[in-house]
Each structure stands twice: as C-alpha cells, then as structure tokens.
Amino acid sequence: MTDTTAIDRPQHTDPRPGVAARRKRTPGQLTLLILSRYGTLIALALMIVIFTAKAGTIFFSLDNFINILSQASLMAIISAGLTMTLVVGEFDLSIGYAASFCGVLVVGFMALQNLPEAIAVALMIVIGAGIGTVNGVLVTKVRINAVIATIGIGTILVGLCFAYSPFPIVTNIPPAFSDLSLGRPILGIPNSILIMLVVLAILWVILNKTNLGRKMQAVGGNIEAARLSGIRVDRIKIFAFATAGVCAAITGILLSALLGSGTSAAADGYLLEAFAAVFLGSATLRDGEFHIVGTLVGVLIISVGFNGLSIFAAPSWAQQVFSGGILILAVGLSTLARRYANAS
C-alpha cells in the first residue's frame, strides 16, 4: 500500500490531502500509530500478565475467566447495541435506563401478571425494539438531537418503571427464569456467555456481511454521500436505534435473572461502561471506526480491570476512579486514532 501512489498522480503539485504520497514516518509517529491501533490489545495483555504475576492462580484460572466472561457478557450485549448506533453516527443515552426498565417489567410480568416466562421475555424484546424505534423516529423524523431525545426517553422510562413498581420485585419469580443467566447447558459455560456470543455474532454478520451493514457504515461515514446514493438514511438509523433497544432489553432481562429480582435502576450503570467499551473498541485495530470485535475487546478490558480491582480488594472509590478514568481514556484514544487516520 505504501509505494505505488505515484501512479495515480502524474502531477506533483496537487496539495490536497489524500492524493499526496504517504510520508515517511518518524519512529515517534510510528510508535503512536501502533499505540493507537494496538494499544488496547497491549493494555489487555499487560493487565493479564500483571494480575497473573501478582495474584497467580486466583486470577489466572478457568473459573475466574468464566467468572469474568459471565460478568462481561451483559456489558458486551448492551455495548454491541450501542455500537450499532455509533456506527450510523448517532448516540443512545437511554440504553442503561431501558435495560433497567425491561429488567423490572420482565420480572413483573411473570410475578405480578402471571405471564409465562417465554412470553414475558419475548414481550420485553419487542418493547426494547419499540423503545429504540421511538428514539430513532425522534432523532430522524422529528430531528431532535440524539443526546436530548435519548436522555428524555431514558428519564421517561425511569419514571414509568417507578410507576409500575416502586419496590423491587422479589417474590413469585419462576425458578426457571434464573437459568437464563446462570444455567450451564454446554460444557459448563454459563448461558449468559452463550447468549452474548450469539448476539455478537449476529450483529457482526449484519454489520460486515449484509447490505444493511454496508448501508449503516455508509450512513455513519458520510451521510450526504449515502443519501445521494439512494440509501434511505432515516430507516437505517431507526434500525440501528431499534437494535440498541433490543440489546438493552436482553441485558436487562439477563441482569434480573442473575439478581433474581426486578430492581429499578439496576442496569443504569451500564450506560457509561458501554460507552467506555465502545470507544476503546474503536481504537482497536481500526482507525477510530466503531466495530463489534473492538467493542468486545473494550468490554474485556473493563471487566478484567474490575476483576483485578476486586481480587486486590481495592476500595470502592478506586472502582469509581477506574470507571471514570477509563471512559475518558477511551474517548481520548478513539479521537487520537481518528486523527491519525485522517492525517496519514
């Protein structure tokens, strides 16, 4: 890729970016480039090495890895949904609240309305899609800024959730429901990990192997070019929001299964973690582009980090500092990666 650009340009006077021949990079620039692409992976590896060295088999064991992954799985699902909205160049700040809302309602439908488990779960996924669709329509058709629209919807969901049940719902939950998260049907791997793998695989295929995915990337990459290519930009965006809604609902359901209760605000914290994970992911392997594999790497970094903090019995304030710090670090890295992509 490096040495043949000259063929394209018989004239060498053209100063516009993009046609200029690739400059030679200084060692410093090269290091930064490597860091901006592989920094997250290096960080993940470093964390694993350091934790192993310090904590030995408490950290480096199959049990602990499964533990980390099952904790990571809920975050991964909601983050993957968020990735979809960021791919089309939008935002969704309602996902945490939507997950909490769906978590309470799914338990309530079973415990208070006596709906069968399968129907309650299916209903919540439809409701999740509905929430996302409303977000998408507000952003594309009513043209409300995504930050405002999704925060507004999220706050409404908090209120509705409280109206539905001001107290945590803990009784009358069918025992089979808990198996959604905790059951280990294959090789002793918890259900939540399997569900995460399926969800991520589906989203990866959509994004990378289908026309829809190409259109999503086009909309996020250059909305005007996409529109002029005859792509129905609004529909694509609404689809992305709906996907985020569905993923939030799944996370909410799995969390309630894990906790064995329907508690309001239980999943709210996923919002910032998801953002951190997705932005870390965008600085992984690609130049600031949002993608599913990257998001998974981001989720793992955060989960391994939290796991390490709890192994070393870090005080609770350290967890807050870690959460906030990683979010800022993630967005910073992602911005850096994008700037490098544009400069080179």
Partner: peptide, 8 residues
C-alpha cells in the same frame, strides 16, 4: 464531502 466515503 457529498460523493465519497474517503476512508473507505
């Protein structure tokens, strides 16, 4: 700005 996705 309106025709191409330059980084694609």
């Amino acid at each position: 700005s309106e025709g191409l996705l330059l980084e694609k």
